[in-house]
Nucleic acid binder design. Sequence first.
DNA 1: ATAATGGTGACAAGTCTTGTCATAAACTCA
DNA 2: TGAGTTTATGACAAGACTTGTCACCATTAT
Lengths: 314, 314
Amino acid sequence: MPKSKRLMELMMTVNRKRRFKVQELADEFGVSKRTILRDLQELSELGVPLYSEVGPHGGYQVLRERVLPPIAFTEGEAVSMFFAVHALRHYSSLPFETESASALNKFYLHMPGDIRDRIDSMKDRVDFITPARRGDAPCLSVLLDAAIQGKVLVVQYESKEEGSHNRMIQPVCIYANNGLWYCTAYCFLRRGFRVFRCDRIREASYEATEVEPIELSDIRASRQGAATPREPVRLRAEFTRAGIQRCESELWLAPMLVVREDGSGWIDTEVARSDLPFFTEFFIALGKETVLQEPAELKNSIRQRLAELLERYE
Amino acid sequence: MPKSKRLMELMMTVNRKRRFKVQELADEFGVSKRTILRDLQELSELGVPLYSEVGPHGGYQVLRERVLPPIAFTEGEAVSMFFAVHALRHYSSLPFETESASALNKFYLHMPGDIRDRIDSMKDRVDFITPARRGDAPCLSVLLDAAIQGKVLVVQYESKEEGSHNRMIQPVCIYANNGLWYCTAYCFLRRGFRVFRCDRIREASYEATEVEPIELSDIRASRQGAATPREPVRLRAEFTRAGIQRCESELWLAPMLVVREDGSGWIDTEVARSDLPFFTEFFIALGKETVLQEPAELKNSIRQRLAELLERYE
DNA sequence: ATAATGGTGACAAGTCTTGTCATAAACTCA
DNA sequence: TGAGTTTATGACAAGACTTGTCACCATTAT
């Protein structure tokens, strides 16, 4: 095998196995140890961050920095990747530390000049906005780690109602929505799946929890479990065109909407009775853009609420 | 220069200049044409998509696909990039066509096995959610292109009030927010900067507009121009803790909020009189979580609105 | 037709690569 | 302490690979 090809393959190989001995590679490539040593030095000069230790149990290592093999990207692909990573700057907290910033930088610096020009001309013209929020979420990486490894955490959670207290939870997944991070987790206190706002989790640690982690083979099942409504109540309402447009902004509502040709529409679904206070506010906010047909119970609570408000503003 | 190094440099060079002749490179590298030809063939075998045409005015070209030079990414950087691009799948429309999907795929396939494992274990655990919206925005790439090149477009816009009609606009920038795409543009009809919802732009074309594009050297100035309030009215209000939390979800409001230690807070700012109808609805939606202090005008309109609603639900 | 440009094969000169050997240094473990 | 393991470096000859040259072909624009 000619040297140039061997170097390329060597690069892939050392990236695959992060630790290796010279003899190993020599056998694998059918060349002498001396040759491999020389090759490794060249790779090193080319930027692959190799580190070696002598002695028994020694050997070579690739440091955390690894060279990805060269990839053929479309110009458009490269641009897409750039803006995707660029969008992450809106997040004040990320589960991957600050590494996206340096990735962006490296990516940008390695671009051929004309692509870089194109990016420059687009940089001020395109953006994926995420609302910048105050709440930092300091525990994201711990939560993610626990989710991946299926471990139980003790967290200090500051809930809306009860103030700050400790809970044991087993994270399932974390996600960002509308500028805030949330964590779905099994809560050992409440014995069920709950969603936690990550910025309200002040501390999280693995410390000696004797609780056995539960089995989470099917994540989706657990998610659904969290959402099953009890005490269903039928909800029917008409929406004007403007009403529909506003409803479409609501994640949970959009899938249940039925839209007519002319843009207006309606909803006919079952909701949990315990959610009625929420719907009271929701329908009030919709103002004249809706006509509520059912349930009477909701109409009543809306009337009552409106009367209270009116009194407040008198 | 040894061959292996020359190959690497050659890769960079052909990526920089997308069209070139063999003789050119031969001079540049101080080797013969024959050697360059052989090298180019090797690059080709390595995946660089070269294309050549014979004859005068012929020469080599790198096709739209280009090999980015190998970049040293931290493991964390690679993972961040993956999830950043992964998040784009939530968007039903993008200004860069479908190229992010293929970028993601290539990226994933080229990862060393253990990083791929790590990504797999994280894929169901982390997400950047963007509300999935119905409205497709078919014209994004045209709008972006016009913004970059400073051209005037004729668009068919379906506005909330006036239905569908044509306008001439000069796009400034486009951005995604909460699942919808918006375009800031100079509107020649209204003679000022306006924000358009891209999914309401049915068609956009360059066709023979004799209108001269305006100068947009400073984009930020133009953005501000769009936001300067006329007929300012002083707005003062108190918010409970829960009220503050809801206000923080509002992008335009968050910067003006003042938050106290205990989580409650207030606002004291100037708004345009023309926005009062909007604030009427906004404060009604806030319910009991706020106490409006000023202006009386707004209080009146809220009262009136509440009374109307109450009647509706009677 | 002519000139420009890429494409291929053959071959000798010579450069670069490789394996071997010797030696050193650092480290582990018994 | 000493034996064994592993990286590290230098020297050198054999030889594998690379290079330049040259001859020739194919295609295409002018």
